[in-house]
Amino acid sequence: MIVTVTVNPSLDRTIVLGGPLQPGAVQAAASTREDAGGKGINVARVLDAAGADALAVLPLAADDPFAVVLRAGAVPACTVPVDGHCRANVTITDPAGVTTKLNLPGATPTVDELAGLEEAVVAAAEGARWVVLAGSLPPGVPDDFYAHVIDAVRTRWGAAAPRMAVDASGPALAAVVEHAHPDLIKPNDDELAELTGQVLDGDLTEAAARIGRALVPNKVASALVTLGGRGAVLVTADGAYAAVPPPTRVRSTVGAGDSSLAGFLLAESRGADPAACLVSAIRHGAAAASLPGTMAPRPGDLPTADIPVAHL
Rank of each mutant, 00 (worst) to 15 (best):
P76E: 14
V149S: 09
D83V: 12
A262H: 06
G24S: 14
N103H: 05
P9Q: 09
G51E: 04
D306T: 14
L312I: 14
G257Q: 03
D83A: 15
L234I: 11
H148S: 13
D53E: 15
G135Y: 00
R249Y: 02
G239S: 08
A128T: 07
T100R: 02
N188A: 05
P303R: 01
A74H: 12
G212W: 12
C78A: 15
A25Q: 15
V5P: 00
D238I: 05
V309C: 09
A232R: 02
P59G: 13
P81D: 02
R13D: 03
P274K: 06
A174K: 13
E194V: 11
Y146D: 03
A165V: 12
L60V: 08
G38V: 00
A124R: 08
S222W: 06
S136W: 01
A77S: 14
G212V: 08
N42G: 02
A115C: 09
V3R: 00
D273Q: 11
A61S: 11
P292Q: 06
S260K: 02
P138R: 09
V26E: 10
D258P: 00
P9A: 05
R33Y: 01
A289L: 06
D306P: 03
R156P: 01
A165R: 08
S10L: 00
A209L: 11
L312S: 08
W130G: 00
P217R: 08
H148F: 01
V7R: 01
T108C: 10
L117W: 05
P23C: 02
N103Y: 03
A62K: 12
D167E: 10
A296W: 00
V166Y: 02
E118Q: 14
G202V: 13
V235D: 10
A221L: 11
V235H: 10
A161F: 06
V149E: 04
T226K: 01
L102Q: 07
S259V: 01
A134S: 14
N188P: 07
G293P: 06
S136N: 05
T196V: 11
V279R: 12
L234E: 04
S269E: 14
G231T: 10
L200G: 10
T79G: 08
A152G: 09
A72K: 12
A61F: 05
H311F: 10
W130A: 01
G84H: 11
V68G: 09
V254P: 01
A207D: 06
F145A: 10
L312Q: 09
L114I: 09
P142Y: 11
T6S: 08
V121L: 04
E206S: 15
V225I: 15
G257E: 01
A120M: 12
E178W: 09
L215P: 05
D144P: 02
T304Q: 13
G228C: 03
D48I: 06
